[in-house]
Design a binder for these strands. Structure first.
Lengths: 121, 121
DNA sequence: GTTTTTGCTAGAATCATTCTTAACTTAGAA
DNA sequence: TTCTAAGTTAAGAATGATTCTAGCAAAAAC
């Protein structure tokens, strides 16, 4: 993967970012340094990073995709008020007996918690 | 809520439906009986039913909203192959210690399991 | 029966995302 | 250097889901 300035800027923005930004959040921020930045570049880079396992797409927000640079398996808590998302790093016992799996095999899981963030409480 | 023929048709389609249909699935099916049916009517009715608690919106599919007439709290398993969704009716111990909640309050949760459905296995 | 409210259709508008195309950059070959 | 090929970008068009708007029709309220 060629490290172009645009890609570096996107990766810098994502690095350590715990806000679970949307493509638009990333675009808006990186655009400040690269006013000519295109939306396509953001999506292309995100898809590329996802393919390389450096990034996770999280389907948490029904309106848009959110991206998470923390690729370790973990869970999320979503604020019902403002949509803020935080990580929950904790393992749960989520075993499902064979007969309750409806014939599906299971190989991973993800828990979404809903509640209110400190600001919305 | 006024029971118009269109609404009855939509509710009939949803009643007992375990396929977690999208708005388009509902539209396509109900349209057979009501060729003049409009998409707006589907969305309006779904939003109305949701408001009355007769329906849940499930953010399981990143591409589109899915609807579930089973409003009891339960979890889902999603086929990574074809996107099929099945219910998991089982309770898990998902307590999170105060100090791991990042200041959020928690009032509900939802588990997504990923795997392969019988057809895709 | 007239007025008011509600719901319907059709299509336009919006918004996120994907696709297409042409220009550009860079590395390496000649 | 010059040329070429591969990979990248910008711009904007295309797509697809969802929401909005306007006008008409039907039902409910008066």
């Amino acid at each position: 993967m060629k490290m172009t300035p645009q890609r570096v800027a996107i990766m810098d923005f994502l690095d350590g970012n715990q806000a679970h930004p949307s493509a638009d959040d990333i675009f808006s921020s990186v655009r400040k340094r690269f006013p000519s930045m295109s939306f396509a570049t953001v999506y292309n880079t995100l898809e590329r990073l996802r393919g390389e396992g450096q990034l996770m797409e999280v389907s948490i927000d029904p309106a848009r995709k959110r991206y998470d640079p923390d690729t370790r398996p973990h869970h999320h808590i979503i604020c019902s008020g403002c949509g803020a998302v935080a990580d929950i790093h904790r393992e749960f016992d989520l075993s499902v007996p064979q007969e309750e799996r409806g014939g599906f095999s299971i190989d991973s899981n993800h828990v979404e918690f809903y509640g209110l963030c400190p600001k919305c409480t």
